[in-house]
Design a protein around this nucleic acid. Structure first.
Lengths: 336, 336
DNA sequence: CTGAAAGCGCTTACAG
DNA sequence: CTGAAAGCGCTTACAG
């Protein structure tokens, strides 16, 4: 069977307390004893059992990452950043995906609680109140892209409004007046804020709202592809499209190519997220830059801080700034 | 503090054994007792502690997923497929990435063992022997894209050889004779097998090997981009390029666009993996189709089976077939 | 410097 | 149908 601390203690002729001390590098241990314990442990191929340890320390050394339905490069970047940073802090990452609905989130929360020391929840679709009522109050939590207002948790949000407004202003500077938007998923915080930013930019430019230019989308390539078909049937068609994320922009670009519409000459295009692959399209894709892996990394950092500082941790609401990644698809020259 | 099974038992005036029975739906429990326990539990907001349970049951209900340095859509698809299937079987997913080196793998293995009921290891760079010497022999393991030969583990491998050979044969059928390959990462199993497939196709077509046509690459967009610069400086340049994965093909495509080389007219191009985004490029990208999310899902299925069947589980070595996703970049018409 | 013992939160034969 | 008690593998005051 499995070799335990008892086996090592017995064989090394010490108590389990001593073995424990050796393995945790705490307390004073005679050098000779330490050597003997380590040797015996190696001989027996002993590995401390994490579950036993967790039960007495009340730490799990694991962090839970709750993601919405994961798909595509955005989430892979979040996970990458989170995992790297978690490892640096000696935490494990328990990933759980595909939670867009209230009850799924609730189940996931229940199931994770007790197995993790803290939780990162990315849930742009879910009202934060649902979380509040379902979370053990003593569990440190960082909310990512959640609706937050007066919630007792740390939170990280992308500056969706500012980023969207900025990129639309840029399209305006290119001289375009009729600018369409392909919207994101309904009831999604990121999507709503980007829409607000789009509208705000137009309004400040003295351009009235035009519902016909606000096309439905779903943050997916396919939805961008289909949205373009609708956009091209408008009379007159717009001069530019702001896609609510890069996946959508990529689908849109594909459709424009297929319909023989030159980008950016006949139609300017910009996305949001600046996923790594954006710069490999032709034309290269203009986007709103968000350091996605940093987002995951930062969430972990905040959470680790919260875990360590315990109850005197001061909650923060951080808005992560964006910048413009100007490339060819909006009409800018290709940068080097 | 945390509310435990004792608190519930006390308040409901039963033993902890009874509370345990109610929550696990086992053994006979008087309906009236069950009701009272459940009510009390709800009142106290009791959630069973997973760590305590694990220690006595010796199950963790978690599966570890060890990935190489994760980046890009391929891995996000693996995780997606794995997580969905794991959830169906009521297992959690403990993800650990960034393991390309021997000692990293060893650390990860040590750290995970005891916290998971089984392990999926994707490690195309690592010799399986390293794994064998580092794994608790009683832990069920499924190897993904690992060098395997006579190892006592289940394994899943993509038919890299067959897929690569097939796509190169297809390029030959388009009439191309000078076909370059952009290779994958060195000492990587998938990369080596794809190279073998490429060579085999050429050889069977009576075309001798030409080292100048085998260009270094790294499975990344950037490496594909740079490889094309070298390829275009060949005299004469080849008529087609087989990129060892889609990321590489995408980088290559980007470079070809930039250099004004028409694809597929002046240069045919094909990739490998068929990542979802491949069909949104212009021209749409021909590739070797692998159902990546199914790969993750299948690995979980195998592992769950192994966990349940215990020691009388029969190890299998499964090779996952591929198919050709023929699109525009190789010269085929666009499918609908 | 070291050990005996209690305790972490559960489950599970065993007895009744 | 229910409970007392041992045990899972650790850690940690406490005592010496």
């Amino acid at each position: 069977m499995r070799v335990t601390i008892k086996d090592v203690a017995q064989k090394a002729r010490v108590s389990t307390a001593t073995v424990s001390r050796v393995f945790n590098n705490i307390g004073p241990v005679e050098e000779e004893t330490r050597r003997r314990v380590l040797e015996t442990a190696k001989e027996l191929r002993y590995t401390p059992n994490a579950v036993g340890r967790s039960l007495s320390t009340k730490r799990t050394d694991a962090i839970g990452l709750l993601l919405p339905d994961i798909y595509g490069e955005f989430f892979s970047e979040v996970i990458r950043g989170a995992d790297q940073t978690a490892q640096q802090h000696r935490y494990h990452l328990l990933v759980s995906s595909s939670h867009n609905h209230r009850d799924e989130i609730e189940t996931a929360l229940r199931v994770m609680s007790g197995r993790v020391d803290g939780l990162i929840i990315m849930s742009p679709q879910i009202d934060a109140e649902i979380l509040t009522t379902n979370l053990p109050t003593n569990l440190p939590v960082v909310l990512l892209s959640c609706f937050v207002e007066d919630v007792p948790y740390d939170s990280l949000n992308i500056d969706n409004f500012g980023g969207a407004k900025g990129i639309v202003q840029h399209l305006l500077q290119h001289g375009h007046r009729r600018i369409a938007i392909i919207k994101g998923v309904e009831n999604n915080l990121d999507a709503e804020e980007r829409l607000r930013g789009y509208r705000s930019a137009l309004q400040e430019a003295g351009i009235g709202p035009d519902a016909a230019l606000e096309i439905a989308g779903k943050f997916s390539e396919t939805s961008g592809y289909e949205a373009v078909k609708k956009i091209l049937s408008l009379h007159p068609p717009p001069a530019a499209i702001f896609a609510s994320n890069d996946a959508t922009a990529i689908g849109a670009l594909s459709a424009l190519h297929e319909m023989g519409v030159a980008v950016p000459q006949e139609m300017a295009l910009a996305g949001f997220d600046d996923i790594p692959i954006a710069q490999f399209f032709s034309p290269t894709l203009t986007s709103v830059r968000v350091s996605i892996s940093d987002l995951g990394a930062l969430a972990i950092q905040k959470l680790v801080q919260a875990i360590h500082e315990k109850s005197n941790h001061v909650k923060q609401h951080v808005v992560i700034p964006t910048s413009l990644a100007l490339r060819e698809s909006c009409g800018c020259p290709k940068p080097h």
